[in-house]
Write a protein that binds this DNA or RNA. Structure first.
Lengths: 102, 102
DNA sequence: ATCGTTGATCGTAAATGTACGATGATACAA
DNA sequence: TTGTATCATCGTACATTTACGATCAACGAT
C-alpha cells in the first residue's frame, strides 16, 4: 500500500464527526467503554459499535474485553503514524514551491 | 458548524488516494491544470473533474479559468485552517491523559 | 438453569461515493 | 461558420456508508 493510500484510509476513518469525537475523547483520556459513548451520543448503540469498528479496522483504536464491558484505547503506534503521515506528506511546507508549470 | 464537523469534512475531502495526490501535487508546486491530472492519472477526465469539485467544495483548492484551461491552486487559507485543526484538535499531545474512567 | 448486562452482528433502507461514456459550454482558430 | 481544445456536467451503474431495530453471544449473578 502506498503512502497516499494509507493517508486516504486514515482520512476516511476520520471522515465522520462521531468518529472525530471518539478519537478526541481518547486523546484526552486513557480509554473508554462502549457504554460511555452510547450515553454521550444521541445515536443507537449499534451505530456506535459500527463507528468503533471502522476506527478499529483503520488501526486507530483497539479494544480489549473486560467482561461484561469492552475497553477501547487509542492505538498509539498507528495514531502517531497517521499524525506523522499527515504532517510530513500533506501539511509540510518544507518543499520549494515551484513556479506554475505548462 | 462545530470544529469536529469541520474536521470531519476536511478528512472526508482527503479520503481518497487521488485527492491526496492532487493536494500533494499542489503543495509541491504553485498550481496545475485539469489536463495535467488527466495525463498523470489513469482514470477518466470526468472522474478527475469530480474529485476536483470535491476538493473545491471542501474549500481546499480553488480554480480560475485561463481559457481554454482551468488552473487550480491550493486555497492556502483553508488548507492552513485544516492543518491547524488537525494539529490542535486531533493530534495535540498537550492534554493530560486522565486515568481510566468508570 | 434462567436472567441480566454489555456490546457485537445481522438485516435492511436510504443516502452518498466512485467510476465511466456521452454531451454541453465556452472561446479561440481556420 | 465550422471546427478544435479544454473542462464541467449529466445520466447511469455499482459499491459503500450510515442509520436503525432486532437478534445473538458471552458470562456473571440469582
Amino acid at each position: 500500500m502506498t503512502t497516499d493510500e494509507k493517508l486516504a484510509l486514515y482520512a476516511k476513518a476520520l471522515a465522520h464527526p462521531i468518529r472525530i469525537q471518539i478519537i478526541r475523547l481518547l486523546t484526552g483520556q486513557a480509554c473508554c467503554y462502549t457504554g460511555d459513548l452510547t450515553q454521550q451520543f444521541p445515536i443507537a448503540q449499534s451505530t456506535i459499535s459500527q463507528h468503533l469498528r471502522a476506527l478499529k479496522e483503520a488501526g486507530l483504536i483497539q479494544g480489549t474485553i473486560e467482561r461484561p464491558k469492552v475497553k477501547y484505547c487509542l492505538n498509539r503506534e498507528n495514531f502517531e503514524e497517521a499524525q506523522r503521515l499527515f504532517e510530513t506528506h500533506l501539511f509540510s511546507d518544507e518543499r520549494f514551491i515551484k513556479s506554475c508549470a505548462s
